[in-house]
Design a protein around this nucleic acid. Structure first.
Length: 919
DNA sequence: ATACATACC
DNA sequence: TACTGGTATGTAT
C-alpha cells in the first residue's frame, strides 16, 4: 500500500506536468505527430483509428510506419477516411475534456479517492479465487487455416479470407505484411500485392466448429463458445477426475499423417511447422511422455497435459491447430491463449504472485473490453500497462464512471470471473445491409420491407416478440443514425415491424428533405422482448418443479463479491444433445441455479458433466483395446472410408470392443476423430454427418423435421402440455394438433418403435442417446403418471398410467393443500402460483444472495452459442438476398451473443423484475 | 425511452 | 470500385 501511495504521488506530479503538454497537443497536434518519449515505437499519435492495429499474434515487429503510410495513402480523401477523421476528433475532444477534469482535481480529492480505491481493492482481493482452472481455446487464423487445409496451394502464400471490401482473417504469412482481419481487401492488396483473397465458406467453418466443440465438451460439457473458433472451458472438474483415470484412457492414437497415406501428404496442412507445437512429437513435460515407438501418445494428468491432449485431438480431427491459455480466470486465460499463438499454449500458475507479475507489463489493450478508444484515453493519462492502471486507480476513479473504474481496478488486480458466464437471454435481434448508394424513396422503402421480412422470419424461428423497433441508417458519408420507437405491445410479424420501420424511415426522410437520404446501409433491429414464459407459465413452472426432485436444494449461499449473475451453470452440452441442451435439461439447470452456489456445484460434481467425460476416456481405453486386437490380425482400413458418414448404429458396430462399456455417447464424429480421414473428407462430409436434420421429441418420440431448436422446443412444449392435459396418452395421437408446430413433425415409425423399445432399456445407440438426456426420460414418466416429487416434497398426485377415468386427488406439492379441481390445467396454475411465491420468498430472504433465481425459463437461451445449424441457415438467407454481392457478410455470425467476460454484468431481465419488486 | 459510442468476433 | 454484420453494453440526455 505504501508503494501505491508513493507511486501515486509521483504520478500526480508528473500528471500535472503532462497535462499541459497534452492539452497543448490536442486536436491538430495529435495528427502526424510522434508522441514524445513515452512510446516511440507506437508512432501513431495520428489517426489511431486508421492506423494499423498490430495487437494480434503474428504481427510483432512490423514496420508500422511504412504500413501506416500505405494505409493512409490508400484511404486518404475517401468518405470513410473523412468520417474516421471526424470520429477521431470526437475522441480527442473527449480526452481533452478528461484532461481538463483532471486538472481540477485537488490533492485532497485524490487522497480521498485513493482511500476509497484501496477499500474496494481490499474487498476485491478478499474475493480472489484461484481455485478454478479456466482455459481459453482459440483456433489459429481459423478461416484462413481451413482454406489452407483444403487448398494446399495456398499454404505458402500470403492469403486472407474475405473480399476486396473486407477481410475476415489472414494467415500468418500475410500478417507479416500488415494484412489482418477487419481490413478491407483492397488495402490489404496494396500492402501485399501477392495476397490471395479467398471468399468465405461459412458452412465449412461451421462444420469444423461443430467438430471442435465436440472435443471441448469432453473436457467441459458446459464450455462456453464465444464464436465459431473460440471458447472458454472450466477444466477444474475434468482435472479432478483425470487424476483417477488409468493411463490407457489418456492414450491418443497418433494419426499417421504422412507415412501411411502418401496421397494426402500434400493436403496435410502443417500450418505452423516452425512453432513449438502439439504434434507430432510432444515434449512430454511433467508426467506425460511418448509411449515408445508405437504411435500412441500418453498424456499426463496435469493441466498442461490435458490441454495439450485436447489441442492434439483437435489437430487430429480437423488438421487445424489451436492455441490455449490456462489461468485462474477468464480474462487471464484469454490473454494467455494469445501468448504462444499459433499452435501453442501458456499456463499462468494459480498464485497471486504469478498473476500480479503477469499483469505488470501487460498492455491494457490486451485486455478484452479495452479497445481502441479506451486505450487512447488511458494512454493520455500515461497509462499503457496494467501496472500503470493499478498505480493510477485513484485518478481513474475520479475521471471515469463507477462501472469503468471498477473494471479497471479488477483488471489491475488480475481479477475476473472464475466461472463461465451462463449465456443469457437474447436482448435484441437485427439485420442490416450495406449497398451502393441508394437515394430513391421507393428503393429505400422496399429495402426496408425486405429487411423487415428477414427479421420477422428470424423472429419467428425463435418465437420472439419485441416492443422496440429500431431503424439504423448510414449515409454515404458513413454517418450512422438510429431511430427507435417503442410500442405498448410486442410485435413480430413483417407487417407490424415494417409499419414502424417505414414510419421511422419516412420521418427521417422528411427531416432531411428537400435533401434525399443518400444511404449506404440500412438495418432494422427489434428489442425489448417479452418473454414467452409470460404466455405459458403453467407448464414451465410445473416442469421446473418436477426437475427439482433430481438435484437438491441447498439454499444456503455465501455472499461473495462476484457478480451474482455469473452463475456457474452454463447451458449447453453438445454431447448431451446434438445441437444444444434439451429444454427440460435447461429448465432443470435453471432450477439448480437457484439452489446451489458455484462452489457447492463444484463439489457435488456435475451430473451431466461426469457422463461425457467419463465416456470419452472409457472410449479411449476401449479404442486402445480394439487397436491391440486389430493389430494382432488385420490392419483396419475400413474405418477411414466409413468415417465420414456414420450413423449411431454404425458407430456401435465399429466399436466392437466398446460394447461392454457403458457408453453414454454416440456422436458420429467419434469415429472419424481417431481414424484415418483425409482432410478433404474430414472437411466436407466428416463433420456435417454428425448433425442430424431432424430431432427426436423426447415426449412423443417423433422426429421433428427441423434443426431449429425453437421450433423443436415449441413442439416439446406442445407435447408436454398435451401430456399433462391427457395424462393417459403418453403417445400423442396422430390427429392431434392444429398447431403449426405440429405440422412440422412427421411420424417416424422407426422412432416410434424406438420409443417403445426404450422401456426395455435396449442396448443400442438410440437408446443411449436418450439415456444421456436423462431428464426427458424422467419427465416423460413422471408427467405421464403425474407424480410430482420436488425437493423434500413427496409425491402427491396418484394417477396410474393405465386406467384413470376418475380424476385424481390433486395435492399441491408446494403448499400441501388438496385442490378442489381435478382439472390439471387449473392445478398446474395453482402450483405455478405457489412456486412463484416460493421464489419470491426466497429472494426476499436473501437480498444479497449471489443466486439468480429463475422466475421463468426462457427456452431460447438454449441455443446460445451452440446453435450451429441456425447460424448456417441464417447465413444462407442473408446471402441469398445480398444486394451488394462483393461484400462479405460472413465475417462474423450471430453466434454467441455474449458479453466479454470482463464486462460488468447487468441484472438479467426476469431478475430485474423481481428485484424491482422488492426495492 | 432514445441516441450514440465502444467493443467483441 | 471498394471500409462488414450481429449483439451487448455503457454513457448521456
Amino acid at each position: 500500500m505504501r508503494k501505491y501511495r508513493q507511486k501515486n504521488c509521483h504520478c500526480f506530479q508528473t500528471i500535472n506536468v503532462r497535462q499541459l503538454s497534452d492539452s497543448a497537443q490536442s486536436e491538430k497536434g495529435l495528427f502526424f505527430r510522434m508522441e514524445d518519449g513515452v512510446r516511440p515505437s507506437k508512432g501513431e499519435g495520428f489517426l489511431s483509428r486508421m492506423a494499423l492495429n498490430d495487437n494480434k499474434a503474428g504481427m510483432e515487429g512490423l514496420d508500422r510506419d511504412k504500413i501506416n503510410k500505405i494505409i493512409m495513402e490508400a484511404s486518404k480523401g475517401s468518405r470513410f477516411y473523412e468520417n474516421e477523421l471526424k470520429r477521431e476528433q470526437q475522441v480527442n475532444q473527449r480526452i481533452e475534456k478528461m484532461m481538463q477534469q483532471k486538472a481540477q482535481i485537488t490533492e485532497q480529492q485524490l487522497k480521498k479517492a485513493q482511500a476509497q480505491v484501496e477499500r474496494t481493492a481490499a474487498e476485491l482481493e478478499r474475493s480472489r479465487d484461484l481455485s478454478r482452472v479456466i482455459v481459453h481455446v482459440d483456433m489459429d487464423a481459423f478461416y484462413a487455416a481451413v482454406e489452407m487445409r483444403d487448398c494446399p496451394e495456398l499454404k505458402d502464400k500470403p492469403m486472407a479470407v474475405g473480399s476486396m471490401s473486407m477481410l475476415s482473417t489472414s494467415n500468418y504469412h500475410a500478417r507479416k505484411y500488415g494484412v489482418r482481419a477487419a481490413m478491407p481487401g483492397f488495402i490489404a492488396k496494396k500492402l501485399c500485392p501477392n495476397l490471395v483473397i479467398v471468399p468465405t465458406n461459412f458452412d465449412k467453418y461451421t462444420a469444423v466448429s461443430q467438430e471442435i466443440r465436440e472435443i471441448f465438451a469432453d473436457y467441459d460439457p458446459h464450455f462456453q463458445p464465444m464464436s465459431l473458433d473460440e471458447a472458454y472451458l472450466d477444466f477444474t472438474d475434468h482435472l479432478e477426475q483425470r487424476q483417477s483415470w488409468p493411463d490407457s484412457s489418456r492414450e491418443e492414437q497418433v494419426e499417421p499423417l504422412q507415412e501411411e497415406v502418401p496421397e494426402i501428404k500434400d493436403l496435410s496442412p502443417v500450418l505452423f511447422d516452425d512453432s513449438p507445437g502439439s504434434s507430432p512429437r510432444f515434449p512430454g513435460s511433467e508426467d506425460g511422455g511418448a509411449a515408445g515407438g508405437a504411435r500412441v501418445e500418453v498424456f499426463g494428468k496435469s493441466v498442461e497435459e490435458a490441454v495439450r491432449e485436447m489441442r492434439f485431438r483437435i489437430e487430429q480431427k480437423t488438421k487445424l491447430t489451436a492455441s490455449a491459455g490456462i489461468a485462474p480466470n477468464t480474462m487471464l486465460a484469454k490473454v494467455c491463449s494469445d501468448k504462444n499463438k499459433p499452435n501453442g499454449q501458456y499456463r499462468l500458475p494459480s498464485t497471486r504472485e504469478a498473476v500480479m507479475d503477469f499483469i505488470q507489463n501487460l498492455p491494457v489493450r490486451k485486455i478484452s473490453g479495452i479497445g481502441k478508444v479506451s486505450e487512447k484515453m488511458l494512454n493520455a493519462l500515461d497509462i499503457s500497462s496494467c501496472a500503470h492502471l493499478g498505480q493510477q486507480m485513484a485518478l481513474l476513479s475520479l475521471l471515469f464512471s463507477d462501472t469503468a473504474w471498477h473494471h479497471f481496478l479488477q483488471v489491475s488486480l488480475g481479477l475476473a470471473s472464475t466461472f463461465l458466464p451462463r449465456h443469457e437471454e437474447r436482448k435484441s435481434m437485427s439485420t442490416e445491409r450495406t449497398f451502393k448508394e441508394m437515394s430513391k424513396a421507393e428503393e429505400q422503402l422496399s429495402l426496408c420491407r425486405e429487411l423487415c421480412e428477414d427479421l420477422a422470419e428470424d423472429m419467428k424461428k425463435e418465437g420472439l416478440k419485441g416492443k422496440t423497433v429500431t431503424l439504423k441508417l448510414k449515409n454515404v458519408n458513413f454517418e450512422v443514425k438510429t431511430r427507435a420507437l417503442t410500442l405498448p405491445y410486442p410485435v413480430a410479424t413483417v407487417d407490424e415491424i415494417f409499419a414502424v420501420a417505414k414510419d421511422l424511415l419516412k420521418t427521417e426522410r422528411d427531416n432531411e428533405s428537400p435533401q434525399p437520404l443518400r444511404l449506404r446501409l440500412m438495418g432494422v433491429r427489434i428489442s425489448a422482448f417479452v418473454s414467452l414464459d409470460d404466455k405459458k407459465p403453467l407448464q414451465k413452472s410445473i416442469i421446473g418443479f418436477l426437475q427439482t426432485g433430481k438435484t437438491d436444494s441447498c439454499s444456503s449461499s455465501q455472499v461473495t463479491h462476484q457478480k451474482p449473475e455469473r452463475e456457474h451453470i452454463s447451458s449447453h452440452s453438445l454431447q448431451t444433445w446434438p445441437l444444444a441442451r434439451p429444454p427440460l435439461a435447461q429448465k432443470r439447470e435453471k432450477q439448480e441455479e437457484a439452489q446451489g452456489s458455484s462452489k457447492q456445484r463444484a463439489s457435488e460434481g456435475r451430473q451431466t458433466g461426469d457422463e461425457p467425460q467419463q465416456s470419452f476416456f472409457q472410449r479411449a481405453h476401449a479404442k486402445r483395446l480394439q487397436l491391440q486386437a486389430a493389430n494382432a490380425s488385420t490392419p483396419q482400413e475400413g474405418d477411414g472410408k466409413k468415417a465420414s458418414v456414420i450413423t449411431p448404429t454404425d458407430t456401435r458396430a465399429q466399436k466392437g470392443a466398446e460394447s461392454s462399456i457403458k457408453e453414454s455417447s454416440c456422436e458420429a464424429s467419434d469415429v472419424s476423430e481417431n481414424n484415418f480421414v483425409s482432410p478433404v473428407e474430414a472437411s466436407t462430409s466428416g463433420c456435417g454427418a454428425a448433425v442430424s436434420e431432424s430431432l427426436t421429441c423426447p415426449v412423443c418420440f417423433r422426429q421433428v423435421e427441423t434443426t431449429d431448436l425453437n421450433v423443436f422446443n415449441r413442439h416439446i412444449d406442445e407435447c408436454l402440455s398435451d401430456t399433462s392435459r391427457k395424462p393417459n396418452q403418453v403417445t400423442v395421437s396422430d390427429t392431434e394438433s392444429e398447431e403449426s408446430d405440429h405440422t412440422e413433425c412427421e411420424v417416424s415409425d422407426k422412432w416410434r418403435e424406438q420409443g417403445a423399445r426404450d422401456e426395455e432399456k435396449s442396448e443400442n445407440g438410440e437408446e443411449l442417446e436418450l439415456d444421456r438426456a436423462e431428464p426427458q426420460e424422467e419427465i416423460k414418466e413422471k408427467v405421464s403418471i403425474l407424480s410430482i416429487s420436488g425437493d423434500n416434497k413427496t409425491v402427491t398426485v396418484q394417477q396410474p398410467q393405465s386406467h384413470c377415468t376418475k380424476g385424481p386427488i390433486l395435492i399441491c406439492p408446494v403448499c400441501q393443500l388438496t385442490q378442489d379441481s381435478d382439472d390439471l390445467i387449473i392445478f398446474n396454475h395453482h402450483v405455478d402460483l405457489c412456486l412463484n411465491q416460493e421464489v419470491l420468498h426466497e429472494l426476499k430472504g436473501r437480498t444479497s444472495s449471489p443466486m439468480n433465481p429463475p422466475l421463468s425459463v426462457n427456452r431460447k437461451a438454449i441455443d446460445r452459442g451452440c446453435l450451429l445449424p441456425l447460424q448456417a441457415s441464417k447465413g444462407k438467407t442473408k446471402r441469398d438476398v445480398l444486394i451488394h454481392k462483393s461484400v462479405d457478410f460472413m465475417t462474423f455470425r450471430r453466434d454467441s451473443p455474449s458479453s466479454p467476460p470482463s464486462k460488468k454484468a447487468k441484472g438479467l431481465g426476469p431478475r430485474n423484475t423481481i428485484d424491482k419488486f422488492f426495492r
